[in-house]
Nucleic acid binder design. Sequence first.
DNA 1: TAAATAACACAACAGTTGTTATGTTTTTGA
DNA 2: TCAAAAACATAACAACTGTTGTGTTATTTA
Lengths: 193, 193
Amino acid sequence: MGFDDRRAEVVQAAWRVIAREGLDRTSMRAIAQELGSSTGVVTHYFRNKEELTLFALEQVFESVMAEMRACAQKWQGLERLEQMLFLALPLAMSDRDDWKVWLAFLGYSIGRDRLIQEHCKRYGLLREILVEMLAELQAEKLIRPELDLMFEANALIALVDGISLNVVINPEQFSASQQQLLVQRHVEQLRVA
Amino acid sequence: MGFDDRRAEVVQAAWRVIAREGLDRTSMRAIAQELGSSTGVVTHYFRNKEELTLFALEQVFESVMAEMRACAQKWQGLERLEQMLFLALPLAMSDRDDWKVWLAFLGYSIGRDRLIQEHCKRYGLLREILVEMLAELQAEKLIRPELDLMFEANALIALVDGISLNVVINPEQFSASQQQLLVQRHVEQLRVA
DNA sequence: TAAATAACACAACAGTTGTTATGTTTTTGA
DNA sequence: TCAAAAACATAACAACTGTTGTGTTATTTA
């Protein structure tokens, strides 16, 4: 097991603690305990907590992005857009933990410009991908030609964020099929008349 | 100046610190400093930090609810629904601070069942109001009769949450009119054919 | 005005935090 | 095989946390 693998194990332990206890109660010692080791391991693989924090944030994001890229290969047309948005939703309970971590980070970022900046970067990347995909759909005349693609991409991100936030806080209010229905209905609105 | 007024001043100082520094960096001492007093004041008006925290959460929520009730008197029909959703959005910069506090609370609540429960209660209240309003609109045959009102209320909440979250994180991406357009478009979808 | 109570200041407390230094063990590489 | 380096453990640190107790000042009340 190499350096990066062990490093990833530390981050995964951090994820578990964050989802269970919250980000502000995720101390170096708590991560080490979750990992079944001492704090020496944590400090050995990360210079400080901020570095660990930023790396964890990147990993959460990258895991979703990887799924999205794989999904883009399997589908096409409007269904591709739908499916990609679906896998960002917390449809299963396991996805909910990812969103717990993400939401914990968002809240933790209030008042921390460095972290806000990181979020902007990641949301920007996501937006780029969606705009590109919407442009393709527009070129294929599958969605309405007068749409402002940047705006529509932001709208889709806001929709998914809003649904996921509510599912994390109050899971009973949105069943998996209801989440999907909401996204489907929004995407349907983009379709050519 | 009575007890409740001074108590409110303490909470407002807490809001300012939360919006500026983040919830986990909002210590009793930081609140006292923002207030220009000693920690004795804070501990005098609140038994402990959790009591202050929950009270602050309630106040943020109540201030929006009060605005909503006032708004409900001024408008009617589908416009009333629209306007009420509008004033929940962070259209102005001052509203953005409220949402910063709200989002900080949401993230802070991850792993804290007590706080999650509080959020459920408040979102439940909001949902009740929206369902009631949708029922009126349905009775007046202004929105489609086959709608699942509970689901639609949750959809509206998710939409507003999603927009607001993105505005707080990345203000440049949603102008005030774009936020309103998004809500308007969604509400328009509910209208009878 | 005098006593009582509310409002506030201040200090000390035990606990937790991230970080660092200094060890010890294990693995690697020549 | 044996030194060098990586991996890990442990302990101590200064700083900060919420809470509590004990004063001091201001306001009310009788």
